[in-house]
Computed example of a mutant assay.
Amino acid sequence: MDYTTEKESNYNDLEKMSVKELLTNINREDQTVPAIVEKSIPQIETVVNITAAKMEEGGRLFYIGAGTSGRLGILDASECPPTFGVPFDWIVGLIAGGDHAIRKAVEFAEDDKEQAWKDLSEHRINSNDVVLGIAASGSTPYVIGGLEAANKAGITTACLVCNANTPVAKVAKFPIEVITGPEFVTGSTRMKAGTAQKLVLNMLSTSIMIKLGRVKGNKMVDMQLTNNKLFNRGARIIMQETGVNQEKANQLLEEYGSVRKAIEKIQDIKA
Rank of each mutant, 00 (worst) to 15 (best):
Y3A: 13
E8F: 07
Y11A: 11
L14P: 02
E15V: 08
M17W: 15
K20D: 11
L23S: 11
T24W: 05
I26M: 15
N27P: 11
D30C: 05
A35H: 11
V37S: 07
V37A: 09
V37N: 04
V37K: 07
P42Q: 08
E45G: 00
T46V: 12
V48S: 01
N49H: 11
T51H: 14
A52E: 00
E56L: 14
E57Y: 08
L61R: 03
L61Q: 02
Y63S: 08
I64R: 02
I64V: 12
G70R: 03
L72N: 00
I74E: 04
D76M: 01
E79L: 08
P81C: 06
P82H: 09
P87E: 12
W90T: 06
V92L: 08
I95N: 01
I95V: 15
G98I: 03
G98A: 12
G98T: 07
D99W: 12
D99R: 14
A101M: 00
A101G: 02
R103C: 06
K104W: 10
V106E: 04
E107P: 04
E114P: 07
A116E: 03
I125P: 03
I125Y: 08
N126P: 08
S127A: 10
S127T: 10
N128F: 11
V130G: 06
I134Y: 02
S137N: 00
G138I: 01
T140A: 08
G145I: 02
E148C: 00
I155H: 07
T156D: 08
T156S: 12
A158L: 05
V161M: 06
N163E: 11
A169H: 03
K173M: 11
T186I: 14
T186C: 13
G187C: 12
R190N: 04
M191L: 15
K192M: 09
T195C: 12
A196Y: 09
L204V: 09
S205G: 12
S207R: 07
S207C: 11
S207N: 14
S207Y: 11
K211A: 00
K211D: 09
V215M: 14
V215N: 10
K216F: 13
G217W: 08
M220F: 10
V221M: 07
D222Y: 14
T226W: 13
T226I: 14
K229I: 13
L230R: 03
L230D: 02
A235T: 10
R236K: 14
R236W: 04
I237N: 00
M239W: 09
E241K: 08
T242K: 05
N245F: 12
Q246A: 14
E247W: 13
A249G: 13
N250Y: 13
E254T: 14
E255K: 12
G257N: 01
V259Y: 06
A262C: 10
Q267M: 15
Q267I: 12
K270N: 15
A271G: 12
A271K: 15
